[in-house]
Design a protein around this nucleic acid. Structure first.
Lengths: 221, 221
DNA sequence: CTCGGTTTGTTCTCCCGTTCACAAACTTCT
DNA sequence: AGAAGTTTGTGAACGGGAGAACAAACCGAG
């Protein structure tokens, strides 16, 4: 029964919960496709691979969208989560660096179907200038600022080699981009207010290697 | 001054620290390439993008490899971290699913240079059977078990569409693989003792979208 | 040898996230 | 209508990690 002031209209959702919402969204989409109308926290938690108590607490940050004794309306909950994340609207995205990974990203159908639209592919190499990938023509990197302004791009993806990544990030920030997904294996420094998320393939493998090594050691002792 | 029993020869390193060790390793490798012989926790922390107190605490789990008043010997520390992670040896890896992403992974030079060797590329599509990617011939998926046994593969990478991923994981586990890096956008269920790490491109973008949306809302109010 | 300057290793405190457990609320059956 | 069975939402306890702060240890100058 808390009073609703304008300042708390933007609720504070814990970061760990934010990271799980897309997982719930995906699980709910699967359930919708299967024709499921309603589900319990137990079922949804199983589909998302988490603890049901954690799921309920996560959802409680969004509001009370369930019904006690019944469960959640799958379609309604899906919409609420999508709205909370912000993927009911379409986010224009630019990808910089059209090597092997850039190709894969440009062709990844999961972006389009989940609220993201690749509006431009950029590469510094002039040889690639006339290449067409996934129906989008590769443009020179210098077009970045114009494209960002023209399409109102807020999110940029870096898929360049490590040495180029910081320069690309700087140019992105200068162009007005405030969220960066970085696939280059390097630490980016950006001003306050700019979000960077890092995806590093070899780091993930190294973490697995560590655990694998420990398993092997345990077998010896 | 704790006594060293055989049971604690396998030290317990916090998961959060394990996830950062590869970052330190990369930063140290960069420093070595620059010709740096020694560095302080402050410098290394800056290069790795973390707090220096956190860095020192992380390193203290491995042992006392620094010298007070001086800092760390870059090359020595790098070796110690590599040994702790287990990348002083070579880990054979198989990649299943040679689509766009599989291609990118097979060509990713960061694997080879960081202690991983792609010993086989597998795909269920017989059309790809004679394709050669990154110098490795694509083999039918049914060869999985034989290849795993032959090369002693412990780590598998799944780069298939979501629908195939669980089947692939089951076959990997049955073949003896105990660590899986999953790029397919689905939740895998595996028996206890098998490690799964997930890399999900669209989830990362959705997390960025959430924060971007909140920034936009703040500007309005 | 001693003293001042530097940097590590570690303790302590705080905060975030996870999980348990249960009251509140809803449905269904009698 | 009331009782029994379900399931949500949340209070509270617990554990782990982050960061500040400091003592211990090392170097070099005099």
């Amino acid at each position: 029964m808390t009073a609703r002031t304008s300042s708390d209209s933007v609720r504070d959702i814990p970061e760990a919960t934010v990271a799980r919402l897309p997982v719930y969204l995906r699980a709910l989409t699967t359930l919708v496709d299967l024709g499921t109308r309603t589900c319990s926290s137990e079922e949804l938690a199983a589909a998302a691979g988490v603890n049901s108590a954690k799921l309920r607490k996560d959802l409680s940050y969004l509001g009370s969208y369930g019904t006690r004794g019944v469960g959640y309306d799958v379609d309604y909950l899906r919409y609420q989560i999508a709205r909370e994340i912000g993927v009911t609207q379409d986010w224009p995205v630019v990808i910089v660096g059209i090597g092997n990974l850039g190709h894969a990203l440009a062709n990844y159908s999961g972006f389009r179907s989940r609220g993201f639209r690749v509006v431009a592919l950029l590469d510094a190499d002039p040889e690639r200038k006339n290449e067409v990938v996934a129906g989008v023509q590769v443009r020179p990197f210098d077009d970045l600022e114009r494209i960002v302004k023209e399409h109102g791009v807020a999110i940029g993806v870096i898929a360049t080699p490590a040495v180029a990544a910081q320069d690309v990030a700087d140019r992105m920030v200068a162009s007005g981009i405030r969220s960066i997904l970085n696939f280059a294996p390097t630490v980016l420094s950006v001003p306050t207010g700019v979000d960077v998320r890092k995806v590093d393939l070899s780091i993930e493998l190294q973490i697995l290697a560590y655990h694998e090594q420990r398993k092997a050691q345990e077998n010896v002792s």
